[in-house]
Amino acid sequence: MTNRKGGLSKVFDYFCNEDPFAEGLSPCPGCPLELALRLLGKILGSQDLVMTGTPSCSNPVMTGQNVGAWHRLTAYCTLMTGAAANATGLSRQYRRSGQDATVVCFNGDGCAADIGFQALSGAAERGENFIYVCYDNEGYMNTGVQRSGTTPIGAKTATTPVGPKQRGKSTRRKNLPLLMAMHRIPYAATATLSHLEDFAKKLLKAKEKKNEGLAYIHLFAPCPTGWGVPTHQAIEVCRNAVRTNYFPLWEAEKGIFTLTHQVKKPKPIMEYTRLIKKYNHLKEDELERIQEEVDYEYEFLRHLTEFRKCVATKHQTAGE
């Protein structure tokens, strides 16, 4: 990939294709979902791209309804339970009939972490040849902001409200990208929209690795409407999620973890939560609890990245 000149950000170097999406898509103002989809199209190209998705915020964008469509892509719309199974069916038939295809299963966290997790885990175990992108907005946004398995502790949603007896969600989020990496699939990675070059690289890597088995990308995608974020600040929320280690950027190839973006001096979680209304109610002790969660998860991940050394040593020993 050659660098362009003229002061453009490097992510443009990855835009090898036309944007397959029309102008004026239907997501809410400021929604990073639109950006994510356009990037995906421009980076992966529409030549062999087959998109599949479920009822969600992405659905009207990807499929349109009845007559309209806002893209020039092959798209298959399906149910949340079997999203990964549908991608399996498509990719198997393309493999069998010798058609080049990059099947991308593009779903929200409700599908990936909750109702469609079984099919996703099954596809990972079987080594199906497609890319699964979960855009994580930490809840069921399309149905009006209810909690999901990835809604973090303390977050206020329509089903985890704040009152005298409840203070937002009382349990911690499911660490889905980690769960997927633990399947030791060829490629699992996290990405977000403040670090586009990182996302672009990971998409291309996923496209390559999906020939060996399932490639999974967990895309952190704040929902301005559901979280109470000003429409111009969604990307800022992404950036602060990374800077606070709330959402570290990493990748894992067959269970070998690497941090793709080192945060030298992590900021306190407050720097992230203060931008988001769903955390408005949090008191100091509650913020501390969230900080503990973040610290634990990051430390866990850091230990995983060190595991590489153990494996390397073992292999060397075996070689001797």
Partner: peptide, 17 residues
């Protein structure tokens, strides 16, 4: 497959393809 729900989804999509 890991369950019948996926079985039906897989063959539906394969047929669509």
């Amino acid at each position: 497959v890991e369950g019948e729900n996926s079985a039906m989804n897989i063959i539906t999509a394969a047929s669509a393809a």
